[in-house]
Design a protein around this nucleic acid. Structure first.
Lengths: 131, 131
DNA sequence: ATGCATTCAATGCACAAGCATTTAATGCGT
DNA sequence: ACGCATTAAATGCTTGTGCATTGAATGCAT
């Protein structure tokens, strides 16, 4: 792969990402009052519900799935809690840790927003193979 | 393409983008004092030099190549000017417009940063076909 | 020529992000 | 048991971003 190919691959990737994020941000915000990262976190929590017994997640577990710094994630969770979409609770076995759990409102909000996200992603990605 | 495929394509795209941007940001900042967007703008200016007679660009022309809002771009150019990497000059035929031109320092900085950018991109993209 | 919508770029403002620091809890070595 | 490095998460601070607005210049219709 030549440098020019690498660069044009990068530009394409970058432009695509920007376009999708921009659309997602607008749609999710307008229709559901959520930012892209907020939705992603809710999404991880919902995904994880199937796997985890109690639906509790350490903040750091969520960090793995979302490309945000630890501080950004901490504040994001604070925002979600303030909005009533998640709860933070102490965790018994390591009292430094914080468990994050979805509230009913959070589950509902996520299920409302999910079709919107899917639609936007489909619009951008459905008929393409990354080229 | 199923919804699940769409979503996993999106996650992959997103993770890839985040990883590359993160590396680029760190390397460009540490080694050359440039952010990713700053570099992109310099890059467009350099690219355009070959095509344009005088190397002058309207702000809005740059906007097309960089996924930033108009206001963000305006401030970014102000930063570049403050750093001595570009010049802003009035444009005669439409006095609302602003021409942006590379300074020598800007050209030099770009040429220093270019290999760093290429290296990072190669590290991430060289042996892949987008998925 | 005058008025009015439009366009270019800059700016006020609010908010989100990262870095560095802080606070609290753990665990390891002695 | 005590001290010390380490880890989890929150917070202060600075910076960058977008939205909405502003100010200036343009162009078009009358």
């Amino acid at each position: 792969m030549t440098d020019n190919e690498v660069v044009s691959t990068w530009r394409e990737l970058s432009a695509r990402h920007a376009a999708i994020v921009s659309d997602l941000e607008r749609e999710l915000h307008e229709r559901h009052g959520l930012g892209v990262s907020e939705f992603e976190v809710l999404d991880r929590l919902v995904d994880g519900l199937c796997l985890s017994s109690d639906g509790k997640f350490r903040v750091q577990e969520l960090a793995a799935g979302v490309p945000l710094s630890q501080s950004a994630l901490s504040r994001l969770i604070a925002r979600l809690e303030k909005a009533g979409l998640v709860l933070r609770s102490m965790c018994a076995d390591d009292r430094r840790g914080v468990f994050v759990t979805l509230t009913d409102a959070g589950r509902i909000r996520h299920s409302e927003a999910l079709p919107t996200q899917r639609r936007v992603l489909r619009d951008h990605l459905a008929a393409t193979s990354a080229g």
